[in-house]
Design a protein around this nucleic acid. Structure first.
Length: 106
DNA sequence: GTTTTGACGTAGC
DNA sequence: CGCTACGCCAAAA
């Protein structure tokens, strides 16, 4: 059986999919969970690939709690709208009480 | 095969 | 307090 070479993306997708509703996490946290805290950029890349999958990319923000990836969504407001729909308050493209809503991949 | 870029992070000024 | 620069790794051109 062929091994999945996309383990990096697959791994990111798997972790991101584990994010509970109403919670958010950071690229660095996911990257660190994968064992590559410096590959935080790759997480964003993986998320871009995850567009169209079960991966809630809107729950992933940078360590500042800023919705840096909103521009990559179908609509730049979709990310904020989705987060609000899950109970996450977004202000100035940033997550309010970010550290309180921050969820670390287990 | 080399160069550029990219949804980040940290450090420096 | 805000911007610049560098690092880091992987994919696309």
């Amino acid at each position: 059986m062929e091994k999945e070479k996309d383990n990096f993306f697959q791994r990111v997708h798997e972790v991101a999919r584990t994010i509970p509703v109403g919670r958010v996490t950071t690229y660095g946290a996911i990257a660190a969970h994968l064992g590559a805290p410096k590959s935080s950029r790759m997480v964003g890349w993986a998320m871009n690939n995850s567009h169209g999958t079960d991966v809630p990319a809107h729950r992933v923000v940078n360590r500042l709690g800023m919705l840096t990836g909103k521009a990559q969504f179908t609509s730049p407001t979709e990310m904020e709208e989705r987060l609000r729909a899950e109970g996450v308050v977004v202000k100035e493209e940033k997550v309010v009480d970010f550290e309180a809503l921050f969820w670390e991949p287990i």
